[in-house]
């Protein structure tokens, strides 16, 4: 029971990362029907920027207090990655908007390779390590299992971010416009919505959330590498499909479910740890066969 609880807690933590990254995939897909294969790399850039800011704050000795420092790191890294995302859309996707569906995917793969190489050239190919003890090493015991402060912070921050996004999408005028554009570009134009601006907005929001995930992964695992975007990105992509690609609550649910499945399977199956990644893709195959629209996909029946 303790083991189960511990695996579940770890799974929820990893699920939070997947969910944050999956939101970027699902929002872009929702609005452009494009799989932004460079999204994982934007998340990786976020992780590196977080790392750089942590080091910079430590070296400069300008750490007023922990909460302020974390706030600065998150906001700056999220902002910069958001701008990178919007720039990427402008340079790599917008010129190909009318070129069918294959060309932008190829462009996305190119952007992914480009971002990885830029980071490799700047930081070098080796692993980088987030300094230890950024967050105090506190943990609590729940029924024999441990929850660390990093895990708790991950959960709180990701829930705040996702709650904020959900509120924005559901309750505000711009959020409603995002949903309208996702349904029908031309009709949205007829409403007076500047579709290009809405697309830019989506390319700001998704990467910002991804960057937050990137920093938290750095704080949680400690080690980051310029190729990490591919692996996490692919898993988050599976999470987005699990929840129903294009569906925002679906990406959140899919992320957490995938994290929990994967960690439990790794804990309970013989040699499970080695099979962890295979399990994620087994889930992808099962979903594609049994419920291609994902768990929350296409709930509304349209009358014709």
């Amino acid at each position: 029971m303790e083991f189960f609880l511990q695996q579940a807690i770890n799974g929820i933590t990893i699920g939070a990362f997947y969910a944050l990254i999956a939101l970027g995939y699902t929002m872009v897909y929702g609005i452009l029907k494009l799989i932004n294969f460079a999204h994982g790399d934007l998340f990786m850039v976020g992780s590196y920027l977080g790392y750089t800011l942590v080091i910079a704050l430590i070296i400069s000795g300008l750490i007023p207090n922990l909460l302020v420092a974390l706030l600065i790191i998150f906001l700056m890294a999220m902002g910069m990655v958001a701008l990178t995302g919007a720039l990427l859309e402008r340079v790599a996707y917008r010129p190909l908007r009318k070129a069918g569906r294959l060309a932008p995917v190829v462009s996305a793969l190119g952007a992914s390779i480009f971002l990885q190489n830029v980071v490799m050239l700047i930081y070098g190919p080796r692993y980088h390590v987030y300094p230890k003890g950024i967050l105090p090493d506190i943990h609590w015991s729940i029924g024999g299992a441990y929850v660390t402060l990093v895990q708790l912070a991950t959960l709180v921050i990701s829930i705040l971010l996702m709650g904020g996004l959900y509120f924005f999408i559901q309750r505000t005028r711009l959020g409603t416009a995002i949903r309208a554009v996702a349904l029908d570009h031309d009709t949205a134009r007829l409403m007076g919505i500047d579709v290009n601006r809405i697309i830019t907005l989506v390319f700001l929001l998704g990467p910002a959330l991804g960057a937050a995930g990137g920093i938290m992964i750095g704080l949680y695992y400690g080690r980051i590498n310029f190729t990490m975007g591919w692996g996490y990105g692919l898993k988050a992509f599976v999470a987005a499909i699990l929840g129903g690609i294009g569906n925002i609550p679906g990406a959140m649910v899919g992320g957490f479910l995938l994290g929990i499945f994967e960690t439990l399977a790794a804990g309970y199956l013989p040699w499970g740890g080695a099979w962890k990644d295979a399990i994620a893709f087994l889930i992808l195959i099962l979903i594609l066969i049994l419920r291609p629209t994902g768990l929350l996909g296409e709930r509304v029946v349209e009358k014709i």
Partner: peptide, 9 residues
């Protein structure tokens, strides 16, 4: 034409 309403709004 074709009542292009936003069906999930």
């Amino acid at each position: 034409e074709g009542r292009q309403i936003f069906s999930t709004l």
